[in-house]
């Protein structure tokens, strides 16, 4: 263990996994629950990071998180309005917003492609300063993230059990039923996408504070990474209760980070990471169909074998 995966690597994987879990949870709401493919995730993630970085540099690391979430809500709102009020296909709406956000993000960062948070205290610094013990210094980021994620998971679980949350779930499950129940599906879609993108924005802000900088290309490929985490999580807990499914998404994200850490230890170059994530997503998505094909093949062979036996028996008679 200590040779291949050091404690430091495990700890980093856990920390990053928990931050990325927020994006995976965002896709859980938009993709799994609302049945919408929200491709604005990449841009929204960077937006959260950029807004968060600017507010953090201004000296308000906690406020930065809320500001990033608010920015995410705005982005989600525009994506949702394009879909619901103007009938733009959901994938196109996401792509349009994603493209536009690139310029917005540059603008937020003062038209520079990089912002350093060096010297500005972050939420991790604030939390670290609560105690001066050595163990606390190294473990406090993980403790903070675990507390935060636990709170978010419970909040999402609570929200999906409210009447509004149930309506959002029904919107993705049976739009006809929603209309027949006096709920405006446009409204539930807008609320759902706003909540989802608030989580994405928050993740962007946290990663900015965690890395100590904000980069315009930070979000590239984020939607695939989050989707991979989501699919890994849903593979294990698909038929569980809602709470188990939400926790499963977080676990999926952490597992994904572990896979990446292993890949790193196997000396796979970082440039290949996007390809590795794409392969993981492709593998996860094709697994059910491949399993079906294998089962079908086995069934065919068994059936042919039995038919042959039947014929032989018939010949004996």
């Amino acid at each position: 263990m200590s040779g291949f995966l050091t404690m430091g690597i495990v700890q980093t994987a856990l920390e990053l996994g928990l931050i990325y879990a927020l994006v995976a949870l965002s896709l859980f709401i938009s993709f799994s629950i609302l049945d919408i493919c929200d491709l604005s995730t990449d841009g929204c993630y960077t937006l959260g990071c950029a807004v968060g970085a600017v507010v953090t540099i201004a000296g308000h690391p906690v406020l930065a998180i809320f500001a990033a979430m608010a920015a995410g809500v705005c982005s989600g709102f525009i994506t949702a309005i394009l879909q619901t009020k103007f009938g733009v296909q959901s994938i196109l709406a996401g792509i349009i917003v994603n493209t536009g956000l690139y310029t917005v993000n540059l603008g937020v960062m003062g038209f520079s492609s990089n912002l350093s948070l060096f010297g500005s205290p972050t939420v991790f610094d604030l939390f670290k300063s609560l105690s001066s013990s050595k163990a606390w210094k190294s473990w406090s980021p993980l403790v903070l993230l675990v507390i935060l994620l636990a709170a978010i998971v419970l909040a999402i679980y609570w929200f999906l059990g409210t009447r509004l949350g149930l309506s959002i779930r029904a919107t993705g499950d049976s739009p006809a039923m929603v209309r027949a129940s006096s709920i405006n599906p446009a409204f539930t879609t807008i609320v759902g996408l706003c909540v989802a993108n608030a989580l994405t924005g928050m993740a962007g802000c946290l990663i900015g504070q965690y890395n100590g900088n904000s980069d315009i290309n930070l979000g590239t490929g984020m939607v695939t990474v989050a989707l991979a985490s989501l699919i890994i999580g849903e593979m294990f807990f698909k038929n569980g209760s809602m709470l188990m499914r939400i926790i499963g998404v977080v676990i999926g994200s952490v597992l994904y980070r572990f896979v990446m850490s292993v890949a790193l230890r196997l000396n796979i170059p970082t440039e290949a990471f996007k390809l590795v994530s794409a392969l993981i997503v492709a593998a996860a998505l094709t697994t059910p169909q491949i399993r079906k094909l294998i089962a079908l093949h086995a069934q065919k062979r068994a059936s042919m074998k039995m038919s042959l036996e039947d014929e032989e028996e018939g010949g004996d008679r």
Binding site: T162, R163, L164, L166, S167, R169, A170, D173, S174, A176, M177, V178, A180, S181, S182, I183
Partner: peptide, 27 residues
């Protein structure tokens, strides 16, 4: 049509019951 397959019977009924009164049922 008319029911949400991945939601429980109870949740489906709760959504239908939203029609009862908007004011009594905070979202």
């Amino acid at each position: 049509m008319g029911t949400a397959p991945h939601m429980t019977i109870e949740e489906n009924l709760a959504i239908a019951y939203l029609r009862a009164s908007k004011k009594q049922h905070a979202i």
